[in-house]
Amino acid sequence: MAIPLAFILLISVVDVNLPTTIHLGPLLVVAPALTASFGGPVMTGFVGAVAVVAQVMIAFLHGGIETLNHQVQIFALLAVSSVIFVYSYLRDRRVRQLAQVRSVSEAAQRVILRPLPRRIGPLRISSMYIAATAEAHVGGDLYAAARTVGGTRLLIGDVRGKGLGSLSDAALLLCAFREASHRHSALPKLATHLEGSVCRNLTELAETNAIASECFVTAAITDIPDREPVVHVIDCGHPPPLLLHGEQVLPLEPRQKCPPLGLGELTEEDHRPETFPFEPGDIMLLYTDGIIEARDGAGRFYPLAERLPAWADEDADTLIRLLHDDLLRHVGGRLDDDAAAIAIQRLPTGPAGPPRRRAPGGRSP
């Protein structure tokens, strides 16, 4: 506020002390224009009024307030200051509307994409979500966790498309997962239930929206028992989870992949989980293709598997933070697709502390 007022004072003093043939009064319009860049309409209007008063005082002290030249300068300054005031008012209203939209977006994120618990059973969980749509906080990528009797189930998925246009399909799958995770004890039954929910929803939408018939959802569904150092995985067309075991990065890719959800109703026989070692101290990373398909300025994909060994000694929270920062550096600060990731760290159990890491002993079908 002091800067535009000082500017008015400086111009007025210099103008009064210059010959009457030199007029600096038109420069006073800079003061309300400058105020509009950081202040609201009230502040802008006040500075504009002070500038007009200063112009009148300059004309009075020059003894020419009745001259047409000074009258035109006063009228022009008043008109331009009024325009700036209106602009400031409209901009302030737009800023308030944007703040309301942002608050609605944040509320939608909390309702649809609930924050994952930091600790669930013997697991420490950390997650990140980067929406591709500007000013959005949630899009077509999704994740969820559910506590079951003796274990934890996690889902990560990616709806075809990106941004807010795919939000409804993401919400449907999340609701179906939260509802069915506690009712189906077997992982194949859960996957079959999710497949049916997505197919039914897309069939209903296809009646009014032709694009819905081309939609599908890739997903990875995992079941982590509390008392067994393993993880069961069903992969429905999704990038395979990565296991950080020591400095080794192992893709948990089932021998038999299922097609994405929504391309055709499959049976429980089609959804066969595969079991992989998941020992205390290991970190499993679930992620969407928005991460591995992110390109830098030269068109190179983000090398996720190559980056992870450098973070082998970090916990889940630090790993996610490093991944977030490194990914944005790789793409220059802006992603073209939604991106999500979950780091799950199995904590050591018992008083003896974490066991020594060993090379993985393979996987069982």
Results as ranks from 00 to 15, higher is better:
Pro4Gln: 04
Asp15Val: 02
Thr21Asn: 09
Ile22Glu: 08
Leu24Met: 05
Leu24Lys: 05
Ala31Asp: 09
Ala31Phe: 06
Pro32Asn: 06
Ala33Lys: 00
Ala33Glu: 03
Leu34Arg: 06
Leu34Cys: 14
Leu34Gln: 12
Gly40Ser: 11
Asn69Gly: 14
His70Glu: 15
Gln73His: 13
Ala76Asn: 12
Leu77Asp: 05
Leu90Ile: 04
Asp92Trp: 09
Val95Asp: 15
Val95Trp: 13
Arg96Val: 15
Val101Ser: 12
Val101Lys: 10
Val101Leu: 14
Ser105Ala: 15
Arg110His: 14
Leu113Cys: 11
Pro115Cys: 10
Arg119Asn: 11
Gly121Ala: 09
Leu123Trp: 01
Arg124Thr: 11
Tyr129Cys: 04
Ala131Ile: 00
Ala132Arg: 01
Ala134Arg: 10
Glu135Asn: 13
Leu142Met: 05
Leu142Ile: 06
Arg147Gln: 15
Val149Met: 11
Gly151His: 00
Ile156Val: 09
Gly157Leu: 00
Arg160His: 10
Leu172Gln: 08
Leu174Val: 10
Leu174Asn: 10
Ala176Met: 02
Glu179Ser: 14
Glu179Thr: 15
His184Lys: 04
Ser185His: 11
Ala186Tyr: 08
Lys189Phe: 14
Leu190Thr: 00
Leu190Val: 04
Ala191Asn: 05
Glu195Ala: 10
Val198Leu: 12
Cys199Glu: 12
Cys199Asp: 11
Arg200Pro: 08
Glu204Ile: 07
Leu205Gly: 09
Ile211Gly: 07
Thr218Asp: 06
Ala219Arg: 00
Asp226Met: 02
Val230Lys: 02
Val231Ile: 06
Ile234Ser: 06
Cys236Ser: 06
Leu244Glu: 00
Glu247Gln: 11
Leu252Pro: 05
Leu252Asp: 07
Glu253Val: 10
Arg255Ala: 15
Pro259Phe: 09
Asp270Asn: 13
Arg272Leu: 14
Pro273Met: 06
Pro273Asp: 07
Glu274Lys: 05
Phe276Gly: 05
Phe278Ala: 06
Pro280Lys: 03
Gly281Leu: 02
Met284Ala: 12
Leu286Thr: 03
Tyr287Met: 07
Ile291Leu: 09
Ile292Phe: 07
Ile292Arg: 00
Tyr302Arg: 00
Ala305Val: 03
Arg307Met: 08
Ala312Leu: 01
Ala316Gly: 08
Thr318Cys: 12
Leu319Pro: 02
Leu319Ile: 03
Leu322Val: 07
Leu322Ile: 06
Asp326Tyr: 00
Leu327Trp: 01
Val331Asn: 04
Leu335Val: 00
Ala339Pro: 01
Leu347Glu: 12
Pro348His: 04
Arg357Pro: 11
Arg358Gly: 14
Arg358Val: 15
Pro360Ile: 10
Pro365Glu: 15
